[in-house]
Amino acid sequence: MHYQLSHLSALEAEGVHIIREAVAEGERPVLLFSGGKDSAVLLWLAMKAFHPARIPFPVMHVDTGHNFPEVLEFRDRTIGAIGADLIVASVQEAIDEGRVIEQTGPRASRNRLQTEPLLRAITSNKFDVVFGGARRDEEKARAKERVFSFRDEFGQWDPKNQRPELWSLYNGRYRVGEHMRVFPISNWTEMDIWQYIEREGISLPSIYFSHQRKVFARDGMLMAVSDYIQQFDGEEPFEATVRFRTVGDMSCTGAFESTAATVAEIIAEVSATRITERGASRADDRTAEAAMEDRKKEGYF
């Protein structure tokens, strides 16, 4: 008899195992959902892990207030369909209450401001297991993060003091006030995600697919014209056929010209590309060699 799982089935089995393990060892899990493709896959795995029961935890979205409307619509539709509770942690509220200070100018981004409302929501809801859709192939600081990533009482990540992770024996123990970030799709690549989305027929926000949009060029990316981003002089808006490769804030997520309108066409496009998805579409990672590491140490996703 010949037993061999495809790489997608093996990754799925690993992800489901991790999710069940974290839920079994924690008290109050929550799943972070951005509306992007990785969190859509993560949510899908969570549904698989507990079928035919509902997922035994709420879903949390950190809302910068600068989201693409298509993504918010997708979020509400998806969470509504599976009957999960949605918690929204609001960056706008944090700004209004003076807990964080908004950057100004054409390069202002609310990206880094997400950490405060995220940690506040974790603390006030007493969440101890926080699922995230980060992947190790995304970024080099993430390449060294554990599947079960321990956070201290300030929500901080200490890259030099991580627990060794052997076999599939995850150590989910923590003390009161601390929590675990758990990354079930750590070992997936961007290509795995797209192939899995195609295989499973997982739906995504429309901005991933080719569409017409008014954009302007900045730093080699095409930024969507919106109320949330100021343009420098000379950044002239124009109509283009574009799609987005990642989903983040309108102020820091860039589009590129593409006619890929289906998942199959996106897979063909991703196979041919020579630029990483963060390099292609995220202004937030371009600020410094260790930008992600610094954000993560503060408690970022």
Binding site: R136, E139, R142, A143, P159
Partner: peptide, 28 residues
């Protein structure tokens, strides 16, 4: 490429297991 942490790049050493991914048509 793999030494992603600030301390690693500053000291020119690898301090941890780094995970990398590659695929051929047969295997990931």
């Amino acid at each position: 490429l793999t030494d992603g942490l600030r301390a690693e790049r500053e000291q020119g050493i690898t301090i941890d297991v780094a995970y990398r991914y590659f695929a051929t048509p047969k295997r990931k």
